[in-house]
Amino acid sequence: MGHATSQRIETLPAPLQGIVQTIFDWIPLGILVVLWEFASGTFVAESILPPPTIVLSRIVELIVTGDVFSHLFISLFRITVGLGLSILVGVLLGIGMARSKPVENFFDIFLSMTYPIPKTALVPLAILWLGVGTETAILIVFLACLLPVVLNAYNAANDVNQSLVWAAQMMGTSERAMLFKVVFPATIPEIMTGIRQAVPIAFVALVSAELIASNQGMGYLILTSGQIGNYPRMFANIVIISAVAFVAVRGFEEARNRVLVWT
């Protein structure tokens, strides 16, 4: 089916191909929205499943009045700091573990033990230590994103091609400089893969933390809209944060492809 479609697309002039492909990509979502519009008020009561047209008007309202922005910005700030910290610590830890046996032995047990724990289960504990608000959200995002970054960096730094290290050695690169000259650049593609895995996880962790432990942010907005029974507004906020997460993932992929021209 997909094959037949793409073959037909190939017969179109080049500039049209991209546009047509994009339309095809969005058709499933379009179908879902139409079904949703149809189901709302027929199979499901409109009060608990507001139709997309109403949700859309609420989205416009939230944007025009600017009500959403302060919450959106605080959420994005928390994500940026939490994810940024996880990248910084994760890369250092991953490469450190791969290059030094004592570092590996010391941290391995923590990572193995924390791996299966859903990081959102730590929200109550984080509230106890850091209170309700930004610090707790950042901590949860940081913890949730840390593992994919560490594991990808660690595996890649362990697998650096021996001949690359030898090649640098024969040209005079010292053991210390090897980290920056060879190990780190060789690890960048996998670090990018780790971050790509961490971006959606960051949104999951953030919204979960904000649902429980925040007086601001998109998670808080979703929760409070629901609590006061304003379901169109709840849906509108869910759609907004989903769209932002989608753009973040696509934006990161685009940036990654530009950085990794050499792979």
Binding site: L164, W166, A167, M170, V182, P185, T263
Partner: peptide, 20 residues
């Protein structure tokens, strides 16, 4: 005693730095 710039290796798998 170890590698030195008086010797240069040409590797079977080329061992070029892919990021350069």
């Amino acid at each position: 005693s170890g590698p030195g710039t008086d010797r240069g290796v040409v590797f079977q798998d080329y061992a070029l730095f892919p990021w350069r």
